[in-house]
Amino acid sequence: MAASMTIRNIVKQAIFIKNGSIGINSKLNVAHKSTHRAHNPNYNRTSAEVTLALRPKQNFLHHDLVDKHRRSPLQKGTEVLQTETEVKAPRDYRFVMPEFMPRPNFEDRDRVLEKLERCDMFRRRTNITIPEFYVGSIMAVSISDPYAPNKRNRFVGICIDRGGIGLKAYFVLRNVVDGLGVEVMYQMYNPTVHSIEVLKLEKRLDEQLYYLRNCPLEYSTFSFDMEPVLLPRDAEIPVNTLKVKLNPPPWEQKWERQNLKGIEPLELTPRMIRGIEMHLKPWEKYDLMLHYRSKVPEEEEEQIMSEVYKEKLKQDSLRKVTKATLRKKK
């Protein structure tokens, strides 16, 4: 090894001496070896200059530097974000209120924006109870409708989807009315929404229930006069392990590819099986970076959820316990 190293060094030196007479062009890293000006547009440019010109330019400030400037002692006039230290949220609180979690892309995130958005969300929550719910819960939403007799439009349905971050948080309710399946999307922080109640709090086996569109209508039918089902306080959220039977194909989406747990086993045709195989991504299980980038770091999550939990405790203590609360006291 030592011998080859010395040989390599000798060769390197030889090249340097040979090119040294040409001067600065010895550092050029062009495939086309000609040093004649007409053929070489990067004549007389060092490789350092070339890399400098070709480096990806950023016309925005790096996110770490932004926070550094905000915290800097040289800065005056703008307040620094306070970290939450008093209260600690229960574990996995992010599943109770997922719209408070920021988007996982750390480069585009801004702490001040998230804080201000959360402030707005807390304020809205003082005026309206936004209960804890999951996909599969049966809910009733009442919005302001100028043309309805009592100025309210009430809709009851099963929550088939939930998403959105911050003030854009939404959920979709599905029900069957007069034999026609109806779905409505509601924004949780929309000021025209007057009340959101959970009539039956439960979870399902899947995170989205769009397959109910291809099921017999009984699975999506819920009475508008349904009475709220109360759960004992501090009970675990019940999981409804119902396996739904799908209508015969054709379906709206290729449910056989989505690895759904809440449907009965499907009869797969050879074509379906081929399709599943084609779209299989078994390597995703091993892709650590994918999983890491799809989540917010734990320390940040704890920080944010602690703030949310503190605010919730404050609001709960202020709010009176009414008949409509879902979890009764023991």
């Binding site: 003082t126 302001s144 000021p191 929404v193 007057h194």
Partner: peptide, 13 residues
């Protein structure tokens, strides 16, 4: 601008 401290809105005709 709707302020979140105010109560829910009633849409007018």
């Amino acid at each position: 601008l709707f302020q979140f401290t105010s109560p829910s809105l009633e849409i007018e005709e």
